[in-house]
Computed example of a mutant assay.
Amino acid sequence: MTIDRELQDIARRTWSAGNWDKVADFIGNAGPRLLDALDVSAGMTLLDVGAGSGGSVAIPAALRGLDVTATDLVPDHFDAGRQRAAQVGVSLDWVEADALDLPFEDESFDRVTSTFGHMFAPDHARAASELVRVCKPGGRIGLACWSPQGTIGRFFALTGEFLPPPPPGFVPPVAWGSEQYVRELLAPYGLDLAFQELLNTFIDESPQHYEDFMFANFGPLVTAVEALGERADEFRAANLALYDDINQATDGTLRYEGQYLQTIAVKPT
């Protein structure tokens, strides 16, 4: 397999910026929901792709007695992950890996998961093939991906308005949040597919506090500001306006729903 090293380096720099471990606390409920839908049980092997610091799926799975391997393109996240795991008394394997070239044998895992991780790999078809390849026959793949029509989709679209145009053939990560797109992407593998539209609730003390936090800690925003130079203030103002627009709270705090698609795929035996 040939990996585009330039794209890989860009992704590594992007997700190394800021502090993903802090941001991950906002999406902590998606992982346990996914594990419930995957019908996991103690003793199963589970691979979590794009695990970050493991708080969403990897560590909750280990707490349920699964044998967990957590991978990420950015191994810097693993120190925080090990601390999280130690605090709750579990251990798991941490492996630096690209979602486009997973360093595991075919049919190695009972369950394969990714929550808002693999969707950012630049080659969607190849990422899909890797998820399927490492899953055992009869095993299950569970994915959680932001929906293009939801609030997080709007956030990424806004960011795209300020940055240079993507390369030809680019498919946005939030395409993974479209049921029809995922059906077409996974069609070659004969998987039994089930989908559910779900919401992740974001709560913070105010829109301004949330913006300050995200621009300090969320890698794509940190690197976008660095790239925008004099337009950074305009970009921040546009983001704050978006947060104000989607805010459901009326008391000065922030509360909004992030729509995402949960996909459960069963690999044929």
Rank of each mutant, 00 (worst) to 15 (best):
G18K: 01
T113A: 09
S53T: 09
G55M: 04
R111L: 14
V49G: 04
F116S: 01
E107F: 12
E105L: 13
D110R: 10
V134P: 00
A30H: 01
S147C: 12
L38T: 04
V57S: 01
D110M: 12
P60H: 08
D76N: 12
A127P: 03
E107L: 12
D93L: 12
P122V: 07
A125W: 11
Q87E: 15
G81W: 04
D36A: 13
S129F: 06
D106W: 06
K136Y: 10
D39G: 09
L100V: 03
V57I: 15
R133G: 07
P148S: 08
C135F: 00
L143F: 04
N29M: 10
P148G: 04
F120C: 03
A97P: 01
F116C: 02
R64F: 07
M119F: 01
D110G: 12
G31P: 03
L63R: 15
L47G: 00
D110S: 13
V23E: 04
D39L: 10
G52I: 01
S56F: 01
L46D: 04
G89I: 11
L63I: 10
G18W: 02
V95E: 05
D110L: 12
N29S: 15
D93W: 00
E96C: 11
V49R: 00
R84Y: 14
D123T: 07
S56I: 12
S41E: 15
S53D: 14
L34M: 13
S41I: 09
I59H: 08
